[in-house]
Amino acid sequence: MTRRNNRHILYVVPALLIYGLVMIFPIGFTFFFSLWEWERFTPLAFGTLEHFTRLGTDPVLGRSFLNNFLYIAYTIVLEGFAGLVLAGMARRMQRSLGFRAVFFAPIILPSIVIGTLWRQIYATTGGLLNAVIGIVGAEPVVWLGPPLTMLSVSVVSGWTFAGYFMTIFYASMARIPQSIMDSSVIDGAGPWRTFFQIEVPLVKNIVVIVLVIITTGGFKAFDLFQILLRRDPLNSGIVLPTHLIRTFFENQDIGYGSALSVLLTMVVVAILLVINTVGKRVTGEIDEY
């Protein structure tokens, strides 16, 4: 460490300017806006709480929350658990590199490609999925409509992210010492028990991180919902981020849109704080093996 010299702060100024002006400053704006009455882009009067009281009576918001929780529950299974199991199976193959490379691949594609492709696969005319189930004589299904909307979107999420989480789990399981794996075999544990009672507990801290990513990611997910469902007139797949964008950019309701942003920010930060506190207690004792 060099001697203290306050001119050295200049090194952090460019990054601080971009980050501060574009990210932090507008957050203050958003919170501030939520306390104003607006006529489109013109602020009328300061000091109203009407946007926050509206949060309590907005039926679409209730629907969005419900859908968000459903999406998180589905994706914990289809992204997280699937990734965990894929990692475990890859460890039991002699050559898994090719498989792993393919499963990871979707995440490099832009969401517009994934969403539009799957919208086409799910389509009622010219759709691949209905044609495939038609081979065994099943009737065509409306995949992107109630009651299947959330499940169908979650499947696309799973297809995109399961390989990503597999890669993370695989990399951390690869650090488990060979002696632990061997002694499990000597003790007569089958592959099922070895995986769930030895390998998974040893990467418990990664499991917590993945849960954090999926849960907070669920409240931030916008692209796939917008691209797969487009306008979604029945709101069967509306989630907090799409509700926010529609309120703000399509209805140009700045006050309520800001209040929704504040709510979304609070939810994400609250989840992080809760999981961080609980997670530390869970992972605290297994940091070394």
Partner: peptide, 17 residues
């Protein structure tokens, strides 16, 4: 702090700015 903030927390303010 920026690691935990969602894009949506500043999007509205940034749009108006």
């Amino acid at each position: 702090l920026g690691l935990i903030l969602p894009v949506q927390s500043f999007l509205v303010g940034l749009f108006v700015l």
